[in-house]
């Protein structure tokens, strides 16, 4: 309740401020064929002849007008005030310039060819080597002879596109093995059981390729070890 009230009060204050301001600082006076631009002190103004009061000025025109307005205003101020204002203005301008330069500098560094960063060729090499391994795995996965099956059963016969291999769920307690299993344990189980082959060593190139292929088919699936 209290909060709402506060918000209301703030909004009302803002509205009041706006109305008062709008009355005190009309920046454009409506007169035919003359545009009058007034400074926020309500006194200093510049008139542009031949321009409609509500016409839109170009950026450079607007800049010229504001410069003139500020010059007129400065002329009316006591010398100490004018000097202080000029100093502050120039320092601000300098800072902005430095900032812009630094930004441009950053970009030029980024564009420069760097020696220890990865080149297009590096990336192509990685992709190619990876694809080779996955393709080899794909081949083994689809060929009963290559996994050493003695009964004609290949991996893909039950797992087209490695479906239902759920590599993201390992490690998990494999109920039927009564121990924690890794994906490679289940690959070996399948080779030994449905396919009646001899299991592979964990670092056998075929095992590595099979793991690579199976994983590649599950890209984007969240890891969820232990899921049953």
């Amino acid at each position: 309740m209290e909060k709402k009230l506060k918000v209301l009060v703030v909004l009302l204050l803002l509205l009041a401020f706006y109305v008062v301001n709008a009355q005190q600082h009309p920046s454009v006076k409506d007169e035919d064929k003359v545009m009058t631009v007034k400074l926020c002190d309500g006194e200093t103004y510049v008139q542009l002849e031949g321009r409609l009061p509500n016409e839109r000025l170009s950026r450079s025109e607007a800049e010229a007008v504001t410069n003139e307005l500020m010059a007129k205003w400065l002329a009316k101020q006591p010398p100490a005030v004018a000097a202080a204002w000029t100093k502050e203005y120039q320092e601000g301008k300098k800072k902005a310039q430095q900032k812009a330069q630094a930004k441009a500098g950053d970009e030029s560094v980024k564009q420069e060819k760097q020696t220890y960063e990865f080149t297009k060729r590096d990336i192509q090499m990685w992709e190619r080597e990876l694809k080779k391994l996955i393709d080899y795995g794909d081949q083994i996965f689809h060929d009963d002879q290559l996994i050493g099956s003695t009964n004609g059963v290949s991996c893909a016969m039950c797992h087209p596109n490695a479906a239902n291999t759920h590599p993201e769920t390992y490690p998990k307690y494999q109920i039927q093995l009564q121990r924690v299993a890794l994906l490679r344990d289940m690959i070996n189980w399948c080779i030994e059981n449905p396919s009646r082959g001899k299991k592979l060593e964990p670092d056998d190139p075929k095992m590595r390729a099979l793991e690579a292929y199976i994983m590649s088919q599950r890209k984007g699936v969240p890891m969820e070890y232990g899921k049953h």
Binding site: V153, C158, H159, P160, A163
Partner: peptide, 8 residues
């Protein structure tokens, strides 16, 4: 002979 998984 063997079951297939459901299509994704």
């Amino acid at each position: 002979a063997w079951p297939w998984p459901y299509a994704p």
